[in-house]
Design a protein around this nucleic acid. Structure first.
Lengths: 152, 152
DNA sequence: CTCTTTTCATTGGTCGCACCAACGTTGGCT
DNA sequence: AGCCAACGTTGGTGCGACCAATGAAAAGAG
């Protein structure tokens, strides 16, 4: 029982959004144990890979709206994972930088995510995983160079 | 510019959730023009394929929480797309059934979704689309028989 | 045939993500 | 000097996905 209508199950858009629900659930369960959420990871990752940045750049790199960056940076600051200082060269900006504790938190979150990938992709062998990743990457790239939506 | 951190772009969980954002956006843009949203489609689809049902069954089939079914059926009733009548055989239940206008609305929404699939999958040829669908279907099935989450 | 447990609809919340508009300050451009 | 664009911030919105609690009704246990 609980049969899912054909109409839904045959639509890639449905498969993707439903699988995303599952992915989001296990990711945020893991993150919650570390006292974090998705936006935090995106910001920490951007800081780690590109160095200190303004909030607007952090938002662009992680696909986070600038108003949401404000809230996330507030939270990360309160937890001691990032520091926010005024930019002396441009007083409209803040410079956000990663602390040592922030780098450790990022490593913790990376471990959570590694476990999540294994859980999520369990039924696939490594060739299939590569195929899936390649297909998704192409689709995501395509979606990004459409002016079809805000994409923030 | 706006380079995305490696950490994100290599994680299938990120690819899936981000692609889902895009899918959701174009779907709900299309549905909005028809005065509808995602839950409405799931309920109309379940009614069309399995016939009149109680609200709890509608929720199970479409993966919608029963409290959300209440709201969606309220809206669909107000629009004249479904009818809600008490079940004479079990007075705890309502029987929800599709009206003719509801069937027409479902057809409209199907057209929206067909266009969405083409948009979403534009970069893939038909073999690749089939491969993707098969992989996603397997992953979704796997996620469903885990007691790892509420799954509704 | 009671008593208890389960089921269903409904109400009224919560949370995360993805947005949007508006405002004040600051920088750049001319 | 004047104007426009950029940045941070506040304060919203909508959707999807949940959760807890309540009252009514059915089902099961004894």
């Amino acid at each position: 029982m609980a049969e899912i209508p054909e109409r839904l199950v045959t639509k890639p858009s449905f498969l993707i959004t439903q699988l995303a629900v599952h992915a989001r659930r296990i990711v945020s369960d893991g993150f919650a144990e570390a006292g974090a959420r998705g936006y935090h990871y995106r910001i920490l990752a951007a800081l780690d890979e590109f160095g200190p940045a303004s909030q607007i750049d952090l938002g662009r790199r992680g696909g986070v709206d600038r108003s949401d960056v404000v809230a996330a940076v507030n939270e990360l600051t309160a937890q001691g994972y990032v520091e926010r200082t005024p930019d002396p060269d441009d007083r409209r900006r803040n410079v956000v930088s990663l602390t040592k504790a922030g780098a450790r938190q990022l490593r913790r979150m990376d471990q959570v995510l590694d476990a999540v990938q294994d859980n999520l992709l369990a039924p696939l062998d490594s060739d299939e995983r590569a195929t899936l990743t390649a297909l998704l990457t192409r689709l995501l790239a395509h979606s990004r160079d459409l002016p079809d939506g805000p994409q923030q």
